[in-house]
Design a binder for these strands. Sequence first.
RNA 1: GCCCCUGUCGUCUAGCCCGGCCUAGGACAUCGCCCUUUCAAGGCGGCAACACGGGUUCGAAUCCCGUCGGGGGCGCCA
Length: 504
Amino acid sequence: MEKTEAIRVRFAPSPTGFIHVGNARTALFNWLLARQKGGVFVLRVEDTDLERSKEEFERNLLEDLRWLGLDWDEGPDTGGKFGPYRQSERLELYHQYAKELLEKGQAYYCFCPEEQLEKERKKALAEGRSPVYSGRCRNISLQEAKHRLEAGEKAAIRLKVPDRGLVRFNDLVRGEVEFDLKLIGDPIIVRSNGMPAYNFSVVIDDALMQITHVIRGEDHISNTPRQLLLYQAFGWQPPVFAHLSMVMGQDNTRLSKRHGATSVDQFRREGVLPQALCNYLSFLGWSPPEGKEVLTPGELVQLFDLSRVNRSAAIFDYEKLYWLNRQHIKLLPPEKKLELSLPYLQEAGLVGKELPAAEKEWLTTAVELLLEGSNKFSELPQKFSLIFDFKPESLEEEAAAIISSDSARKVLKALVEKTAGLIEFNYDLFARITGEIKKETGIKGKELYHPLRVMLTARASGLELDKFIPLIEAGAKLNFPRPVKSSLQRIREFARLINFEPER
RNA sequence: GCCCCUGUCGUCUAGCCCGGCCUAGGACAUCGCCCUUUCAAGGCGGCAACACGGGUUCGAAUCCCGUCGGGGGCGCCA
């Protein structure tokens, strides 16, 4: 009979800043496994480093995870039957278990001053030896230690590790990994300030929270033997481990700020969709069996497979992330596109806080058109300047070149003349007029349309005119903080500037 | 220095475990063409990789050894 126990995984970040994409990927892989297997995803905050942990950071962390869509079943805010989920609130537990080891003789008090240890470590390193604790305090009896403690001495607690032998484990992504105990030494499990050391608290927590699979970064691989030793000391069944490779910057060094945006929060502010970021992150070290690349979170949950996770480090590629983001933006319904665009447009002062129905409708169309080819929502205000900014007095070089030819001047002159008496304008009219110009001047194609575009937009490139003209005509009738100029206004303004007064 | 992990196109990767189907597949980027009213989008096509050296084998990207490169760790940080 095979009884498959529910999978329990956890993400255990320390609240020391914004959540990094590398950590986000770790969280994602844990979450994917839990969701796929109907397991439990636990969020645990590792805030035992008093100097670096801040409450505010914890808030950011939860927000980022929520935004990514990685919801947890148990955690500091939601609770659960294995709580508390904040290490700073579990201190009692750690002391209790440390005491157990002390009494069983598997751990001991160490009175060595930090400076001395530091000196020994440096010396060992300089001599090319592995810096391993000497074991000086190993034989101080518990009784003696207690006396010294009472006398006011400070001591850390160390785990007694056998000095020969091998620790091995079967890593789900790497296979058999083994370490020589000689190189490990007795690790500190409780610091002299009473706070548990990382390697100790994770083990206690993972064990007590009944974590079945520990999926984490490769940087933890060399902590694993120490942790295994602790499971052994307690006689506990260790979880299964899976170590994910690192995420690097373009120069193959660890991803950092100088590589650009690296925190989830930064991508959120740029207007990268959470589903796109998840999609991209999932492809760092994993790939689905079929070649499909644009996947929704639901599809990821369905397809994810730890055994398809590869072992080598991956370089974070912004281009590909943005490409995926474009694909996910395309998938969005128009209302959603508008909703997500609004904050950027408001911040740029292009639209007000209040949005009347007519403006909203117009914006929906405009956003739909201008989002085409945008990498992220933050690029939108820039794209909108095509509509809101008309600056014939400061043409870019390319645009200026386009209208400098004789044929271009002919075309522009014709347009100015043919629109001179008009008070209304629309695309049909434009099409008819350009048809006439074509017939009368014999100028066609690029030679014809390119100058027209420059006159209407003061740019060399942008939306297709059959989309652009209706858009500005409708926009000109609305009340935006920065008004949209109509086609006729544009033509006349441009004409005045280049001294093309229509003849009377 | 020592220990551990890792090495397929510029990048993410498939293939590797279970050698032949691999003249190594896909995607991003790039280049070219098509479409088009420029640009973009889209379509089509091109360039481009098994780190190196030894084995094993009829046959190796795939198995073994070594070299070199990259990363991580060696904390009273997590």
